[in-house]
Write a protein that binds this DNA or RNA. Structure first.
Lengths: 130, 130
DNA sequence: CGGTATCCGCGGGGATACTG
DNA sequence: CAGTATCCCCGCGGATACCG
């Protein structure tokens, strides 16, 4: 992105659409969090589920499948009893994790600031009603 | 984030929830793109609409309002005729833009790789059906 | 244990028409 | 120009039950 510093006509940018499509995918409710959980080491299904917390089996399955389709995670099945499945990041996934961690760090750093803004904004909205 | 390298019990992580809530907000369909468009300079409503391309007035309004509530963008009204409104990033918004641009750059760099993965994954899925 | 299958509600998000 | 107001659809995502 950075959209080569358009001194240009601000007409509809076609590149945006494609980038946006990818961003929508990685920006969905669970994807970023899931990737983060795999950065340090591969994890098993229920291990991931516990770490993330609040995600349903189905959504974790869907999220992992989408990431697999995009070449972000690998899925290794050990045919033991009980069965065991390990998910890990591919090189592509690892490379994406780098900037994502930056975003995550930013959120942690500014979370209280954002919440303060929201509170005062709502306060203001209430006052306007009277 | 980075979740202080948990040597710990991988029990439900409460921090995740809050971070995830923020991530969901900035990760929605239009927010990242909108912030990107404001990095270089303030922009007017319809100017933004054209630059982003494919967004409806309503969604742009909603997105900008949410960003305003979070203290990410400022809204300046010039009571001219016709009316004129300029949106710009606050310091908070600018600081968020930094890591977001990294993610955007990553997407641009790897978009073809991802699409290739998706294609071959679908191909594989089709084969399995037979 | 690691998944599918099924059902379902809510809200994200588009389209259109209208207003100051 | 820069929004509201309305209507409506689709699919994200949760809950539950079942399968290998």
């Amino acid at each position: 992105m950075h959209m080569p510093a358009p001194p240009n006509t601000p007409g509809t940018n076609p590149d945006c659409r494609k980038v946006n499509a990818i961003l929508s995918r990685i920006g969905d409710k669970w994807t970023i969090l899931t990737i983060m959980m795999l950065v340090d080491q591969p994890r098993r299904f229920n291990e991931l589920k516990r770490m993330i917390g609040g995600i349903s089996q189905q959504m974790l399955t869907r999220t992992l499948k989408a990431l697999e389709a995009d070449g972000m995670v690998t899925r290794k099945v050990y045919p033991t009893i009980p069965p065991q499945v390990e998910y890990g990041l591919t090189n592509l996934g690892q490379s994406l994790a780098v900037p994502l961690i930056q975003v995550g760090a930013w959120v942690l750093d500014h979370i209280s600031e954002i919440e303060a803004h929201r509170a005062s904004y709502e306060e203001e909205a209430k006052r306007m009603l009277r």
